[in-house]
Design a protein around this nucleic acid. Structure first.
Length: 346
DNA sequence: TCTGGGGTCCTAGGACCC
DNA sequence: TCTGGGGTCCTAGGACCC
């Protein structure tokens, strides 16, 4: 049995802002753009008490939390703190898979103290705090899913061990929408079929549930029973796609403005490819109109592209084919099938 | 009080080939 | 005329996550 750990920085951007400016400590704080069409990227636990959530329109957040302090993100600083946090972990562990800027999985089978897992992980949590001043939640389990669910159980600065002996009391009573992978669309559909908790999904034989989840049914059911993937992949970050998009504060129809934004996004995508010395063999254009209808068109290219001029040219060609005068609130340009330069990306 | 930005993975249908 | 079966690649859209 492996010893998998999931570590998650609690409300990371909000924590980071408190390090930049300690007077923000223990305040209802939201990080994000405070303007028309701005949303909350992350908020402090104090703000969450009022119902403020990630992804919520900022105008709504201000409405439900009158004293909300709004800070525009300092993303370079977050990246710096994240690097510091992960380099400490990489010094101690070799099997680390970074899942995002603020979370990772670690296979600690070789390192952990099996006589006292809780004490070992508690010490790790404290050392991380001493070295970085960052608070994290730690979850431990025999596989990725259990570790991830465990770290979600107690926040902030939580430490939870889930195993096949305590999942019935700790995991199964959780509402089905708390299950990793079940989101706002699938949860209500499952509930309509009588699946209210993770335990219900773990035990169900209902063929309607199987039909709803399709091929994912067996996967989710074994996860819920504590039998999941326990592989941690420590390979260097290797992006498969890359994109840039912008929402306008006012919808636009002006051709020159649209073309300028396609150029800007193309340049951002090209810069990202340049950073990793990659090229791509598919270009994608994404549009969203004033009624929030979103559509995209993609084109596989006979040979890979990498420079902003060629990405821009392809993106404009695609745009001309799929734009029919709609009033646009969003324009995006992306590339897919990203591979190393000079090699076939497949 | 309307809904950001950057990713991953899955599905379903069509084209094309043998 | 009325139409197989399998495999692969491509596309568009949806769901989900941070």
């Amino acid at each position: 049995m492996k010893e998998i750990v999931h570590i998650d920085l609690n409300a990371f951007f909000a924590q980071a802002e408190c390090l930049r400016d300690p007077t923000l400590n223990e305040k209802a704080l939201a990080v994000g753009y405070d303007g028309r069409r701005g949303v909350v990227a992350t908020c402090s636990y104090e703000a969450r008490k009022f119902g403020v959530r990630s992804g919520m329109p900022m105008s709504q957040a201000k409405e439900i939390c009158k004293d909300l302090i709004i800070v525009n993100g300092h993303y370079d600083y977050y990246r710096y703190l994240s690097k510091k946090f992960f380099s400490y972990l990489r010094n101690r562990f070799s099997l680390i898979e970074q899942a995002s800027i603020d979370e990772c999985y670690i296979d600690m089978t070789a390192e952990i103290d099996r006589e006292d897992r809780h004490g070992y992980l508690f010490d790790l949590q404290l050392s991380l705090y001493r070295h970085t001043r960052l608070k994290c939640s730690i979850g431990h389990g025999a596989n990725r899913f259990l570790a991830k669910m465990a770290s979600d159980l107690r926040k902030p600065m939580g430490l939870t061990l889930l195993n096949r002996e305590n999942i019935e009391s700790l995991l199964w009573p959780l509402s089905i929408d708390k299950m990793y992978g079940i989101g706002r669309k699938t949860a209500p559909r499952l509930q309509a079929l009588g699946i209210q908790t993770i335990g219900d999904l773990a035990r169900t034989q209902n063929p309607d549930v199987r039909r709803l989840l399709g091929n994912l049914f067996d996967y989710y059911q074994s996860e819920a029973n504590g039998f999941g993937d326990d592989h941690v992949h420590p390979e260097a970050f290797d992006p498969k796609s890359c994109s840039a998009e912008r929402t306008f504060s006012e919808d636009i129809t002006d051709y020159d403005e649209i073309r300028d934004m396609i150029r800007i996004c193309s340049e951002e995508v090209a810069a990202e490819l340049e950073k990793y010395r990659k090229s791509a063999s598919v270009v994608v254009v994404k549009l969203r109109d004033d009624r929030f209808r979103t559509w995209s068109r993609r084109k596989a290219l006979p040979s890979p592209v990498e420079g902003s001029a060629s990405i821009f040219a392809e993106a404009m060609r695609i745009f001309e084919e799929c734009y029919h005068g709609e009033s646009l609130r969003l324009i995006g340009v992306g590339v897919d099938k990203v591979g190393n330069r000079g090699k076939d990306p497949s």
